[in-house]
């Protein structure tokens, strides 16, 4: 029982970090019709920004984190939108998807060639000391990761639902034409979405890299899990991506511990196909606009 609790909690912790990446992915998909296949790399790159900040500029860790966040929002948010999404979106969604795939190769290879092909240690935000939690040995890192990422989700939800800007963003995503008529600056709202996505991806990076180490190929796994979490949860809802992320985190850990470690990477596929067959709009999704 204590092992089960331990597996469950650490699954929730990683799952909540996946959820951050999944939420960003879903937001950009909705607001800008951009299916970003480089989302996994968007979680891989900020960790290297932080390492560069510390290694090349000699920044203290906290400043390097801020530097990484700012640089990510500039490069993966602003530049991504201006240089890739804006010129390619008029050519169609599939062209843009393929461009993001090429971008994924570009980011991966650039990190590999210019920084390192080896996994780099990344300083932990929180201590990894074990803590007794109802008889289960749980690391403080897991608990704090879970708390921090859930707080980020709560803050984001409050922002989107309670502030004027947040509501304008939702309007711009749901019906750009009407939003424009009502005086919403749709272009700016879409830009905000890209910035928020970059911020979410870098926060996910700061939380997950101490666990996985910083490596150029990290994006492959994280990306796949983020896409599938968003789809499984129901991508037109923030809470959908959250539930999807948590579910995959927990199931992944349970499969690895109790069923098979060799095939744990197959779990997202199984889950994805089951959801498409049984509930194509996702667990939390409403079916509008998704039926054939």
């Amino acid at each position: 029982m204590s092992q089960f609790l331990q597996v469950l909690l650490s699954g929730l912790a990683t799952g909540s970090i996946y959820a951050l990446a999944a939420i960003g992915f879903a937001l950009v998909w909705q607001a800008a019709q951009t299916v970003n296949f480089a989302q996994g790399e968007f979680v891989m790159v900020p960790a290297f920004f932080v390492l560069i900040g510390m290694g090349f500029f000699g920044m203290p860790f906290w400043l390097a984190l801020a530097f990484g966040l700012a640089l990510s929002m500039l490069v993966l948010g602003y530049a991504f939108k201006k240089l890739i999404v804006e010129p390619i979106l008029p050519h169609g969604g599939i062209t843009l998807i393929i461009a993001t795939m090429a971008l994924a190769i570009l980011l991966k290879e650039t990190v590999k060639e210019s920084y390192s092909a080896e996994a780099q240690p990344f300083p932990a935000l929180f201590s990894n000391a074990p803590m007794n939690f109802f008889g289960a040995a749980v690391s403080i890192q897991d608990i704090l990761n879970l708390i921090v990422s859930l707080s980020i989700v709560v803050v984001l939800t409050l922002f989107l639902n309670r502030t004027r800007t947040g509501r304008s963003m939702q309007a711009a995503a749901q019906n750009p034409a009407v939003a424009e008529i009502l005086g919403v600056n749709v272009k700016r709202m879409v830009l905000y979405t890209f910035l928020i996505n970059a911020a979410l991806a870098s926060l996910a990076a700061f939380l997950i890299t101490p666990v996985y180490l910083a490596k150029f190929s990290n994006g492959e796994t994280i990306g796949l899990i983020a896409f599938i979490a968003a789809i499984v949860g129901g991508f037109n809802q923030i809470r959908g991506a959250l539930v999807g992320g948590l579910l995959i985190g927990v199931l992944d850990n349970l499969t690895a511990t109790y069923v098979t470690a060799q095939y744990r990477a197959a779990l997202p596929l199984v889950l994805l196909i089951m959801i498409i067959l049984v509930r194509p709009q996702g667990i939390m999704g409403t079916s509008e606009g998704r039926s054939v």
Binding site: V35, F37, G93, I94, I97, L224, F227, I228, I231, A266, P268, L269, L272, I273, I276, L277, P280, R290, S291, V292
Partner: peptide
């Protein structure tokens, strides 16, 4: 299953 739903689901299913 992938083509039952509109959208780019085949991309994700085939990736997995």
């Amino acid at each position: 299953p992938a083509l039952r739903v509109k959208g780019h689901f085949l991309a994700f299913v085939t990736l997995a």
